[in-house]
């Protein structure tokens, strides 16, 4: 990478970083102890699950689909971990791969059904949202399963950096995801298919495997999100992550990913997650009630899209 390229990519995220800095600064000035390492670290450590899921969601959105099942798949993954570790006394390193395998298989099924039978992914994943949630309740008997300290390590801060392994892995997944998107054939195909699937097909490329893979990756990352969530709560909660798919979509949209496909960035979605997280905890520290928090968050999502739409229009004129 030349210096110019690095400069360009920083510039690309300048808007998002600016918004993030503005939020942090505002909250720091208006509350006494917001701008403390402790606060920022807490925000970071409580959001790896949303980061994992947003990375997968970004890929799915770019390829021109949508994945509404992520929240339910997260719960299903936790249930798998809970059942294996509590009822069957499996160690965590054996339970987690099975959990990821299950959620990845669900993602694969999402992609397969949607692509092979040409059903909009909105419908397929809406069905999966219900099915996975139901399955979660079946395997857990609708009870929260307490696992205890055996899973907590992943979510607890490491002493030196005070960040949790979960957050560090999530950071790694963001970097890997961005690499996949920008440096590999698969990523280029994703963007191309989201832009004009028929043109890609007519260029002699099979589009179906690419789309199915994107959904499978989204499912797999739900499994990692399950681990992050169970280790933070020390238990598997069948009612966890209800509505998380909407937060993930919001994060992607704030980051500038197009719901029509063909445009988006994993790093930008990561900043989208941070913006939502900082907003939430900042407003909480200000003592704003939940109802108002919802209104403000909703407003920020619409503003972000408005801003993006204006920028796109302006860009086209040039």
């Amino acid at each position: 990478m030349t210096r110019r390229k690095i400069f360009q990519s920083v510039l690309q995220y300048a808007g998002l970083i600016g918004v993030l800095a503005f939020l942090v600064l505002t909250f720091s000035l208006s509350t006494e102890n917001f701008f403390q390492t402790q606060t920022l670290v807490t925000i970071a450590n409580s959001n790896p699950d949303l980061i994992f899921i947003s990375v997968g969601m970004t890929l799915v959105l770019i390829v021109g689909g949508i994945d509404l099942s992520v929240g339910s798949l997260l719960a299903l993954g936790s249930a798998v971990i809970g059942v294996l570790m509590v009822r069957h006394q499996w160690p965590v390193y054996a339970a987690v791969p099975v959990c990821c395998l299950v959620t990845a298989a669900c993602g694969l099924l999402n992609g397969f059904l949607s692509v092979w039978f040409a059903i909009p992914s909105f419908i397929v994943t809406l069905g999966m949202l219900e099915m996975a949630r139901g399955a979660t309740k079946v395997v857990t008997d609708s009870q929260t399963m307490y696992i205890g300290s055996r899973v907590e390590g992943f979510g607890e801060p490491i002493s030196v950096v005070s960040l949790s392994p979960a957050f560090l892995v999530a950071l790694g997944v963001v970097i890997l995801g961005q690499f996949l998107l920008t440096q590999t054939v698969f990523g280029r195909y994703c963007v191309a298919i989201g832009t004009n699937r028929e043109a890609v097909r007519m260029s002699g490329i099979r589009t179906k495997p690419v789309i199915i893979t994107a959904f499978a990756i989204s499912g797999f990352l739900c499994g990692l999100a399950s681990l992050s969530q169970t280790s933070r709560l020390s238990s598997a909660d069948p009612n966890a992550a209800i509505g998380l798919e909407l937060s993930a979509i919001a994060a992607c949209v704030i980051g500038g990913t197009s719901l029509m496909g063909g445009r988006g960035s994993v790093v930008a979605s990561f900043f989208g997650v941070l913006i939502i997280a900082v907003l939430q905890s900042g407003l909480a520290q200000l003592g704003v009630e939940d109802a108002i928090k919802q209104i403000v968050t909703g407003g920020v999502i619409i503003l972000a899209v408005l801003f993006d739409a204006v920028r796109q229009k302006f860009g086209k004129v040039n």
Binding site: T195, E198, G262
Partner: peptide, 9 residues
């Protein structure tokens, strides 16, 4: 435009 090019790319 329909099936030859990725116009936005």
């Amino acid at each position: 435009k329909q099936n030859g090019l990725l116009l936005q790319q």
